[in-house]
Amino acid sequence: MGEPTDDTQMGLRLLGGIMDAYKRVFVTGGAASLLSRPKPVRRTGFELDMRIESVARETDDVVGLTLRATRGGPLPRWRPGSHVDVFLPSGRQRQYSLCGDPSDRFRYRIAVRLIPDGGGGSREVHETLRTGGGLRIRGPRNAFTFIDAPSYLFLAGGIGITPILPMVRAAGSRGQLVYVGRSRDTMPFLHELPGADVRPDDEFGVPDIAELIARAEPGAAVYVCGPPPMLAAAQRHMFELNPTGSLHTERFSALPVVDGRAFDISLARTGGTVHVAADETALTALRRRLPDIAYSCQQGFCGTCKVGVAAGSVDHRDRLLIESERADHMLACVSRAVGEELVLDL
């Protein structure tokens, strides 16, 4: 081969500059990767029949379940932040974070807080599941990815400790945990967290999230899981306090409706019309008319509430449906009508 021409050398230099920029932004954690984005979650996982090995009362309103494969043998591997879909005896489907030890290939552990005015899933767990009983699960799946970072700050609120607990163990000396809650007797797994900064409200007052985030070292990965006001405060203050860090959040409640407009849903099979207010989800409105409609995550990633769309245009706000499904399906927990009416296959 001959000597490269000036044009060739210029092209190579340009290509090298593009690759360097790519590495700075997407590989080493530059500005474009600072805030954890919604990630598609694997749609199907392993379906497993499990046996409840033990039921432990962690607090007055939290039970921990340890599960083993019904037929024995090792379980699928998982990373901190993973969850499983649990199919309850009633047919309800719910997601619960794995909060045990990822190195234990023979047991999964989940914990469930009782929500008296919820959709009935937590009550069913508390009132009907017993040691020795069977349970079907799917997973593990992960929408709360634990990344490699030079240091970590973990903020957990109440039952939000469940996905964070394995992360704290994995981070070791690189991590610091601040655990908040109403009172110590409402905060599960305290006995497993001897090094945590435990700050119950009845001892320290309502936490100042900005003050807590300020503890993170420059470039730290900050993980937050707790009630919606805690997550909102973290998102509001993170990058003014730690512009080189990254923020990762997970919530256990429905997403608030943003920029919603009222619309009507016509039910093609059962008949009738359901009105959806501007500040509520289609799922919330549908449950008034169809209380047994299937749902689970209420955040647009599990697909349990997928319904057929017979007519109308959809404002898709989910993280699951592929493009070919969007013309005639929607996830009722997050998506809405573009216009004034949708006709659903319900």
Rank of each mutant, 00 (worst) to 15 (best):
G195K: 10
I110H: 04
Y152C: 06
I159G: 05
R109M: 13
E124N: 13
L153M: 09
P150R: 15
M167I: 11
S122V: 09
R109P: 03
R174D: 12
T162P: 06
N142A: 09
R169K: 15
N142F: 08
S183P: 02
A170W: 01
L114G: 05
D201C: 11
N142Q: 13
V178C: 06
I137K: 09
I159D: 01
D185G: 05
I137R: 07
T186P: 03
P166D: 10
I137T: 07
S122Y: 07
Q176C: 07
R109T: 14
D104W: 11
P188D: 01
G133S: 04
D117F: 08
R130H: 08
L165Y: 02
V112P: 03
R199S: 09
E127S: 14
S122C: 09
D185I: 01
D117H: 14
E124K: 11
E124I: 12
G160R: 02
R199C: 08
D104K: 11
G134W: 00
L177C: 02
E192F: 00
R184M: 06
R182Y: 05
A143F: 12
V180G: 05
I164F: 03
G172H: 12
G158C: 03
R123K: 15
I147A: 15
G175V: 06
P163M: 05
T131V: 00
F154I: 04
R105P: 11
G121F: 09
P116K: 08
Y108T: 10
I159C: 04
V178D: 01
S122H: 08
T131F: 00
I164D: 01
P102S: 14
F146V: 06
H126L: 14
G133E: 13
M167L: 10
V125Y: 04
L155S: 02
V168P: 00
G139H: 08
A143Y: 12
E192Q: 15
F106V: 12
R199N: 10
A111H: 06
I161R: 01
L165M: 12
G160M: 01
G120M: 12
D197R: 14
A156I: 04
R130K: 12
